[in-house]
Design a protein around this nucleic acid. Structure first.
Lengths: 226, 226
DNA sequence: GAGTCGGTGTGATTTATATCACAAAGTAGC
DNA sequence: GCTACTTTGTGATATAAATCACACCGACTC
């Protein structure tokens, strides 16, 4: 039984679009397509990293144990590679990935992935571009989080979710308040308070999971002034 | 007058060691070696990114404007590439790099750098490995900084400087207290206080610029428990 | 329907850290 | 050497946000 077909995959990564037919055939033989339900762990920190994970569809949180609890490093949306740093930089996973919605992931043999880098420059180039973009994003958020205060960070996080992840001003928020705190670097209670405050000021509207942004401009102002 | 010689450069990057003689000759023609004195800016945020910067010798700070001031993203030591994300991920620099000691940098034409990635898989692979290692480091520090409190972060930063940058328990610290604050995500005054506290507990010893770690184990404990 | 449980809102309190303020010590220029 | 400027240490104060505490609300189970 054929589980997947890489050649005609409608969710090919920009990198994989540069692979030849032959390379795609090899990829097909050395990769596995796995579906995850909301809440399931895709790969786990401290486990041996055997594959590169490619997020084909869905949304995941990338997270890591910290001194006082879980830190959510980033929310990622398909299509994207998830575990390149953890596969190329170290033998064991330095972070975990967990599905926030139903998700499909391709696990690609690390040796094969490495061979593609060696033999296909365009493939390698796209991987590098993706890594670089991620790094720039991280720097941006890192800077914000260490200088802004809660209002600013929560506003920024909401904007980011709206623009980058859901591409809509209204969305079903896949994180609990506590997780949003872990992402924004603050506490569950503080998030809650900021959210109600934004709501009373008619900047957002929400009922538990459903959030809609009413006044994007003011939200951006709050995000920018910190 | 020949400014530099890539073929026999004793500071070749792991990536550049995979270049052929011919490629090194091209590199030599399309790169420039520039020396910087302590405090000089190597490249600046918001300027057009024209080259990939390779830190051949020296130590630099990579920093970025934040809502309330400068954020130091990381301290980097030669040999390392400095501006890959800023050259590959975007047309304009998303961060600055400033020399902390006298430093030499090779500026490599971005187009040529890209061609090397396309045509030399081993070169590309080493670049990817470097990017991945950096990302893992960033995640680690990011997690620490958002969960530890000042004692922990300052301790961690000192340990990191000692182990990764100077490889010695005694070193001439190239940052001001204020910069150390920008790096650790805290204020100048808090850094000062933690430092004197660590000093009265005989964990470190310092006089303004010269710092020595006396009790590495206790410093690590403080760093780990937050 | 009663009971458990994870998630949530929100007030009261505590606490870590920023900020303010100023003196002292370095450092650079002339 | 003296002057001006930056950097540093440290006490007093202010404040943002964590923590604690409790009530509430679904969603499940039995």
């Amino acid at each position: 039984m054929k589980t997947h077909n890489c050649k005609d995959c409608p969710f090919k990564s920009p990198a994989a679009r540069n692979l030849t037919i032959e390379e795609l055939e090899v990829l097909e033989q050395h990769s596995a397509l796995v579906n995850f339900k909301k809440g399931e762990v895709i790969f786990k920190e401290e486990a041996l990293s055997l594959n590169v994970a490619y997020l084909r569809t869905g949304i995941v949180k990338v997270h890591k144990k910290g001194p006082t609890g879980e830190k959510i490093l980033r929310i990622m949306k398909a299509p994207t590679y998830l575990g390149i740093p953890t596969s190329m930089g170290d033998k064991i996973n330095q972070f975990s990935a967990t599905a926030l919605v139903d998700t499909s992931v391709c696990f690609i043999d690390t040796v094969l992935f490495r061979n593609f880098i060696f033999q296909n420059g365009k493939f390698a180039y796209e991987i590098i571009v993706e890594l670089c973009r991620n790094e720039l994003n991280d720097y941006e958020r890192f800077t914000s989080q260490s200088q802004k205060q809660v209002h600013g960070i929560v506003a920024e996080t909401l904007l980011c979710m709206s623009e980058k992840i859901f591409e809509s001003s209204q969305f079903n928020f896949p994180l609990t308040r506590s997780e949003l705190g872990d992402l924004a670097g603050t506490s569950r209670e503080s998030v809650s308070r900021v959210l109600t405050e934004l709501s009373t000021e008619k900047i957002i509207q929400f009922n538990t999971k459903e959030i809609s942004i009413l006044d994007k401009e003011r939200l951006r102002q709050i995000s920018e002034k910190g």
